[in-house]
């Protein structure tokens, strides 16, 4: 039997390739931002540390790629499908909201991985990026972070009634996350009350967890980050599948 999930991811991926404007925000924008900051701070080790700015913040830019794909792309695309009646056509076929969401996710996941690889290539080639952790642990926390942010993105993707409202909701989620969680600005530059607020965002936990493992820590050293991310996975899946709107 053919799998609906694989078929949806395939067609969504093809459609993504045919809409080149989406590439800029996912692939190019985080890369440009990283290169901009790196050109200011360089990657000389911080005093008393073995790592420099780029080693420290590359995971934040990975988080930025994730938010762009899993919240921006997913929400705007699903909301437009809903408004145009494309989801209504899917609804007439024996396919579940879960397959549609997961198919969309798989398609943007491929683009996310491409964006992350671009960051790594630039980091290694230009700034002598150092990876100090365990590779498999990093792959694990990277995927957990991705799935957690995607599950959060599933909520507006499942509910936003029109393309316009989808864009607004995605922006409301995107920009605070970008600035508060350390993706666009170093987290340490935030005043204390904003740091507290930022702990409500999954992206903050994702970035701190990936950063910790990237710089040589173990994932089990970060139980709070793990718990929050896993919590978002369940909450996001529950809300999106339970309240999914076809029209």
């Amino acid at each position: 039997m053919k799998s609906p999930f694989i078929a949806v991811s395939k067609s969504e991926f093809i459609l993504y390739l045919r809409e080149p404007s989406a590439f800029f925000f996912t692939l190019i924008f985080p890369l440009l931002l990283m290169l901009l900051f790196a050109s200011i701070w360089g990657n000389e080790p911080f005093p008393g540390e073995e790592f420099g700015y780029v080693d420290f913040s590359v995971t934040a830019f990975m988080g930025m790629v994730m938010v762009t794909s899993f919240i921006m792309s997913l929400t705007t695309s699903m909301a437009a499908y809903r408004e145009k009646g494309i989801l209504k056509r899917f609804r007439a076929a024996p396919v579940t909201p879960f397959s549609i969401l997961m198919g969309q996710l798989a398609a943007v996941f491929a683009v996310t991985v491409a964006g992350v690889i671009l960051l790594l290539i630039a980091g290694f080639a230009i700034y002598d990026l150092k990876f100090m952790g365990n590779f498999f642990e990093f792959v694990f926390v990277f995927h957990l972070s991705a799935v957690s942010i995607a599950a959060l993105g599933f909520i507006p993707a499942s509910l936003a009634p029109t393309a316009r409202s989808g864009e607004v909701i995605a922006n409301i989620m995107y920009f605070p996350m970008l600035f508060l969680s350390g993706a666009a600005l170093p987290h340490s530059m935030l005043p204390d009350f904003l740091k507290d607020i930022s702990l409500l965002l999954p992206l903050t936990h994702a970035i701190k967890l990936m950063q910790g493992v990237w710089l040589g820590g173990h994932f089990w050293d970060y139980p709070v980050h793990l718990a929050v991310l896993i919590g978002f996975v369940f909450a996001g899946l529950f809300v999106s599948v339970r309240f999914f709107r076809w029209e």
Binding site: S11, I14, L15, R18, E19, Y81, K84, G85, I86, K88, R89, A92
Partner: peptide, 8 residues
């Protein structure tokens, strides 16, 4: 009334 993706 229904639609599929324009660029499919």
């Amino acid at each position: 009334e229904s639609e599929i993706q324009d660029r499919l």
